[in-house]
Simulated assay, not measured.
Amino acid sequence: MSSLGGYDLSAGRDAHRADAPTRIPVPSLLRSLLTEHLDPGYAAAAQAPRRRGRVSEMAWQVVAAVLVATVFGLAWTQARDTASGVRESQQVLVGSVRSAEAAADTAAERRDSLTAEVDAERRSRLEGDATGRQLLTDLDQAEQAAAATPVIGPGVTITVTDPGMSPNLTDVSKQRVEGSMQVILDRDLQLVVNSLWVSGAEAISVGGVRIGPNVTMRQAGGGILVDNQPVSSPYAILAVGPPNAMQDNFNRSAGLQRLRLLEASYGVVVNVSGGDGLVLPAGSVRDINFAKQMGLK
């Protein structure tokens, strides 16, 4: 029996049976009205916006993909142009630095040559009498104290090798940061130099720069400047003096104890050795200005 009241597909076929109810077939139009509540035209109209929505969504996705690709293309082009400009700027700066270094080396050679000529002329004029020779002796002592003359002699060499340099050239002079690749700081080298003076050194150089009365050693970002000249690892510290006594005293100094602590804690490589014929260059000579009290009005 159908779910529709009074409708049976086999209606009329069993009418000969007694007491059998008579089923009235339901017309197809009435059946469609009862079962199909939405007209086919409405269903098609309802499906059309969905299709248009899907098409519109796909179109927006394509537009978004095109925009993303355009943005990435522009970013890549800009990055390529910027990288090219950065490389050109770096090449220009490197060229300028090398040119300045070459000019500085030429000027230093010229200065040394003129200094040697002046010294030879002065000695030739003063060596003729006793007074002049005494002046030369006093002058030599003053120049040696001022580190104004090169020194050759026996002594001690301390080589300190940093485990690595950090690419980040930020200011590390305040503290030693755990995990930083740079370990040796200006205060470490200062302590070593002071310990060598106490141990009996007569002349000292750090990184090829002579230590004199007006020479400073300080941190500048991630580098160390000695007399405003950059020095880098491995740091070579040369000290001219009695090698045996000086090395024995330095082995008990606070400077070597600091280096050994850094060696054990951070992997710094420290090498202390004695030797003959150490060559220390002359240091920079600067004019010393003295302040004087002016008369009060």
Rank of each mutant, 00 (worst) to 15 (best):
D186G: 14
D140T: 10
D162H: 02
D140W: 03
A75W: 06
N168P: 00
E109H: 13
D105K: 13
A104G: 05
L74R: 05
V177M: 11
T157N: 01
E178N: 14
A145E: 12
L185V: 12
S84T: 15
G164W: 01
S166I: 00
A100V: 05
S199P: 09
A104K: 01
E117C: 00
A120E: 14
L93T: 02
E109C: 04
D171R: 06
E178T: 14
A100M: 05
R122V: 13
N168S: 13
T115P: 00
S199V: 04
R110H: 13
W76R: 10
S195W: 10
W197Y: 15
R176E: 14
S180L: 08
R133A: 12
Q190W: 03
D81S: 14
S96H: 00
Q90D: 06
T159P: 00
P154F: 05
S124M: 09
L135Q: 15
R80H: 10
A107T: 06
S195V: 10
D81Q: 06
D188S: 12
V97I: 09
K174W: 10
V193Y: 02
Q144L: 12
D138F: 06
Q144Y: 13
A147E: 09
P163N: 14
L114A: 15
P167I: 02
A79K: 06
S173E: 12
V94P: 01
G95C: 03
M165P: 00
R98I: 09
V193N: 02
V183D: 14
L189F: 12
A203W: 02
T161G: 08
R123Q: 08
D140P: 01
N194G: 13
T77D: 11
G200T: 15
T77W: 07
I152A: 03
I184P: 06
A83Q: 11
V151C: 06
R187M: 13
L139V: 01
Q134T: 07
R98P: 00
D188H: 15
G155E: 01
S96G: 06
A104H: 03
L114C: 01
D188C: 13
V172L: 07
A201Q: 01
R110A: 15
R87A: 10
D105L: 12
R176D: 12
D81H: 06
P154M: 03
S166F: 06
E143Y: 08
E109F: 11
D105V: 02
L189Y: 04
A146W: 00
